[in-house]
Design a protein around this nucleic acid. Structure first.
Length: 157
DNA sequence: GCCAACGTTGGC
DNA sequence: GCCAACGTTGGC
């Protein structure tokens, strides 16, 4: 099993929004980066765990834990001219962009701020903390996953 | 195939 | 609002 970190702007879609969704599940649409698409296609498996990370907001940080609940499948928004994610270059028979579904898995007792992540020396090589990192989905090593779960007081099953 | 210009991300 | 970093685009 692998572990992941998924960035989202909480003003657009937050961890709390996910909990309010039917079946607490949401299609993770709008990914328009080839590296991330390939990771979703090749490396993500149903049952993997991930963090929801809030970015571009007052207090960035990790909000909670989700489970990857689908294989990669075509992102329907690429075919919708009304969508901000519309890609007129993508063909139905050969979709350019994929998504996976995420399902709520566990709450944190405490939100884990970016500052707290940076202050933890054992997380020094966490990809998300690397200078200039811009990928909206990154792999997380198990040891890092466990540390962050502990920091947040995750109520894992 | 190179690389400058441009656009986006995201912390501060 | 600024700006560093980096992916993408497009001219050549």
């Amino acid at each position: 099993m692998r572990y992941w970190l998924l960035k989202t702007e909480p003003d657009v879609f937050s961890f709390d929004d996910l909990k309010k969704r039917a079946k607490k599940t949401e299609p993770w649409n709008g990914v328009r980066n080839y590296q991330v698409r390939n990771m979703m296609r090749d490396d993500m498996k149903v049952g993997d765990l991930g963090f929801i990370y809030h970015s571009s907001c007052e207090v960035p940080g990790v909000a909670g834990v989700v489970r990857i609940s689908s294989e990669a499948r075509p992102d329907p928004t690429q075919f919708d001219p009304e969508s901000e994610y519309y890609d007129k270059g993508s063909k139905k028979e050969d979709p350019r962009w994929l998504l996976i579904d995420v399902t709520w898995e566990a709450d944190f007792k405490d939100f884990v701020t970016l500052t707290a992540l940076r202050d933890e020396p054992r997380l020094a090589d966490l990809i998300t903390l690397r200078r200039g990192n811009r990928l909206s989905v990154t792999p997380v090593e198990k040891k890092h996953f466990d540390i962050i779960c502990k920091m947040g007081g995750a109520k894992l099953k």
